Computed example of a mutant assay.
Amino acid sequence: MDKAAENSGQLSENVVLTTATKRTAIKRKCNFMKKLKTTDALRSEYKRSDFGELVRGKYADRITEESNVVLLEPDIARAFPNDEAVNKALRYLLEVAEVSTRLINR
């Protein structure tokens, strides 16, 4: 029984040593992947003229037209805890407008 205990102890020591050795080898292999220091300058193979004119906010109008995001005034935003509350209130307002329009058109 003592030999079995000794063998299991040796086995676990070997496994630990092997794992530690593998970790060291992996660390050595990974050293080549360190990031290089870069500068903000363009690489020599690129020319600034290849990129065309830079325009700030070039797509701002298109995004505004295609977007359905609405910016609420601060006092209105305080009245609604989240988007669900805003949607519920607007749906109710549409329903009331629809009902009142039907009553007027009779």
Rank of each mutant, 00 (worst) to 15 (best):
Ala4Phe: 09
Val16Gly: 07
Lys88Glu: 04
Asn14Ala: 13
Tyr59Phe: 10
Lys27Ser: 03
Leu94Ile: 09
Ala20Arg: 02
Asn7Asp: 14
Val96Glu: 09
Leu93Gly: 06
Asn68Arg: 11
Ala41Met: 10
Leu103Ala: 02
Val70Cys: 05
Leu42His: 00
Val99Trp: 14
Ala25Met: 08
Val96Met: 12
Arg48Tyr: 01
Tyr46Met: 08
Thr19Arg: 08
Arg23Glu: 13
Leu36Gly: 01
Leu11Glu: 02
Ser100Lys: 15
Lys47Val: 04
Arg56Glu: 03
Val16Asn: 14
Met1Trp: 07
Arg106Val: 04
Ala20Met: 04
Asp2Pro: 00
Thr64Tyr: 12
Lys29Cys: 06
Asp75Leu: 08
Thr64Leu: 12
Ala5Cys: 04
Lys34His: 08
Ala20Asp: 04
Asp75Pro: 00
Ser67Ile: 08
Arg106Met: 03
Asp2Ser: 12
Thr39Val: 13
Ile63Arg: 12
Leu103Ser: 01
Gln10Val: 12
Leu54Glu: 02
Ser49Pro: 00
Arg62Cys: 02
Ala60Ile: 03
Leu42Gln: 00
Asn14Gly: 13
Ala60Pro: 00
Thr39His: 06
Arg23His: 13
Val55Gln: 03
Asn87Gly: 05
Ser67Val: 09
Asn31Ser: 12
Ala41Ser: 09
Leu94Arg: 06
Arg102Gly: 11
Leu90Val: 14
Leu72Glu: 11
Lys88Ser: 03
Gln10Leu: 15
Asn31Glu: 13
Val15Cys: 07
Asp61Lys: 08
Ala4Val: 11
Gly52Pro: 01
Pro74Asn: 09
Arg91Met: 12
Lys58Val: 12
Leu71Tyr: 09
Val70Glu: 06
Asp50Gly: 06
Leu42Arg: 01
Thr38Pro: 00
Thr18Asp: 02
Phe32Cys: 03
